[in-house]
Design a protein around this nucleic acid. Sequence first.
DNA 1: CATGAATGAGATTTCATTCAT
DNA 2: GATGAATGAAATCTCATTCAT
Lengths: 200, 200, 200, 200
Amino acid sequence: MNKKQDIIQAAAHLFAEQSFEGTTTVQIAKAAKSTEPMIYYHFKGKDDLFTQILERASHEYFSRLKRLPGDTTTQFEKIANLISLHFYFVREMPNETYLIASTCPARLNDPASICKKIVEQQRFWLTDYLTICLEKGVREGEFQRVPVSPTVNIFIALLNGLMHQRGLGFEKVEGLREETITFCRRSLVKKEVTNRKRQP
Amino acid sequence: MNKKQDIIQAAAHLFAEQSFEGTTTVQIAKAAKSTEPMIYYHFKGKDDLFTQILERASHEYFSRLKRLPGDTTTQFEKIANLISLHFYFVREMPNETYLIASTCPARLNDPASICKKIVEQQRFWLTDYLTICLEKGVREGEFQRVPVSPTVNIFIALLNGLMHQRGLGFEKVEGLREETITFCRRSLVKKEVTNRKRQP
Amino acid sequence: MNKKQDIIQAAAHLFAEQSFEGTTTVQIAKAAKSTEPMIYYHFKGKDDLFTQILERASHEYFSRLKRLPGDTTTQFEKIANLISLHFYFVREMPNETYLIASTCPARLNDPASICKKIVEQQRFWLTDYLTICLEKGVREGEFQRVPVSPTVNIFIALLNGLMHQRGLGFEKVEGLREETITFCRRSLVKKEVTNRKRQP
Amino acid sequence: MNKKQDIIQAAAHLFAEQSFEGTTTVQIAKAAKSTEPMIYYHFKGKDDLFTQILERASHEYFSRLKRLPGDTTTQFEKIANLISLHFYFVREMPNETYLIASTCPARLNDPASICKKIVEQQRFWLTDYLTICLEKGVREGEFQRVPVSPTVNIFIALLNGLMHQRGLGFEKVEGLREETITFCRRSLVKKEVTNRKRQP
DNA sequence: CATGAATGAGATTTCATTCAT
DNA sequence: GATGAATGAAATCTCATTCAT
């Protein structure tokens, strides 16, 4: 179980850095301090290795999404949690995040690929989660009167952009998570409410 | 000059869909209804073809950035223009946008690649543009007191996310551009200012 | 069209000598005085090359079978013709004959293989041809009262055995074709008839 | 001694079905419900396993040949016995028969292989046996005046064809053995003799 | 006897690139 | 400009064999 993990780690790293096709099995073997046949001992092939990496990563990602608390006092807290989750995920699994956000969209044409499944599931889940938040928040007067559907998409784009941090050199920026949340709060939450909360 | 264009178009499309490494010269030739040797007649090689596509695209992108008006009445207008520019660019050159946003980050390790140049230049330019906007806007009381550096990065992430529309299935969403601008305005521009502007 | 023929020739020879799996593409390329990629230029792969060889061979074989004259004066002539045909075929296309007779039966488990098709077609055709001959010959008093079905199978076994000459070292045996025919005539054709024919 | 037998059985079956080269040690191990290292515990290697299978089979085959009664009343009985022997052998050891008849001829080029030994020995033995039978039978007036050498080869071809039953779908044909003998008797044995034998 | 893991050698296949025409 | 054929280099994958336990 040791070598297999090494291979997965090495491959995830290389796939994220060089793309799936741009990474050779020799490179993976070398990076994992193993040999090519070992890859084929543990995996059915390069595709399978890729699939397993993405399956692990997406499993972790979606299980985190599902574990998000449903009983927050405000709707915005839910959105803040969602943003934080993505920041933490990027930090803990940078390679995997990058694979999901970047490699997957490029592979949507192959319907057999897990990529299609992941991207669709992610889109569906985020849309669902955000739609409910926004509708409730607007209805209950917590949020401004924003049009739900486009706003949902703006959030998805933002989260997706944040998942690309690795390629954008955001690692060193301090306080980005908190500020992203604040940025969104200012846009969504009604002024009066915010002020009242902060003033006392 | 006809065939060359065909090749560029075909290649841009395939590179965006399958990544650079995942696309073969045979595929390009076939998609361009031409032959492999023709590719080598017009380009030095696959790398050169890729480079030329990105050069054209980035040239267009940066020249649009540079043509952004510098004499707007408000700072937010500048930001709105920047957002709009990205929406228009994505719509007009979807493949190229995708290449810049998605393929490039994966190729930052190769220092010879234009990718590095483009990504760095883009990051530099956007940072510069947004920093000036935000500092001025904050200083002049148009914007709320946002911390400049993180906010700049949030914008970059958002723009980057928007450039991935192709992979996110945003094509059908109506009014996304306008709503993105509104979303950012609500977050940045001081209420009083906005209200004053709109009320009279 | 030159190199392609060379490859086919070389491959047919090697496949017959060493079996399909026992023959490597390097060997084929070398024997054809060509290179491995050339094989893949002309054929989809080793399987395809094998398939094309067998298709050519079986096409030739079956078209010869179909060209057998139907208007012979005696039924035995038909059988003699069938035997001769196999001798000539073995002599002209020894490798291909060997492939059909020897490689094919070993590949009957793969239903996608042409092998299955060829073997079944051959069996069907020979059975048909021989059954008609024998039934007619028996009915008309030319042949002795032989049970048709087993006799058909004996002929098929005999023809199959003759197709293995290459592996049995029969090349040098003189007069084998004629004697095979005579052997079968003696067994099938009624004495009186034979005598009458020969005596006058 | 249990596992070793399992391996031999599994290997014989697979070799017959897929050829030696087309069968992998993993397949053998799996089919024998054992593991690869077990194969190497019992055999020196794949070659050795193959050799042992063929040695057993050919030993059994040749010892049956040698046990054929030499004191029959007629020469044709000897031939009938030879034919029967092959039928029984095929039925009892179908895989092994197939290996001898089909795999061996394809491996005649490798002089180290037992295949060469078996094929040559078989050919030699059958030629010897049949030649003596035929010469004696002709000389003593039991047989018609057939040319010995070609007729020997016809028999060898026929026996060889019968050994391929497995690949020809003869399993279901009833009475094939008896009819094969009758077929040959009619061709060889003088009418008068036959009649005399049968009439009283 | 038994097995999971490992490996060197080599087989099949792909691909960017070029040559001859 | 254009193309069919060719090729060197390398990528993916397989497999007989062995090691450590």
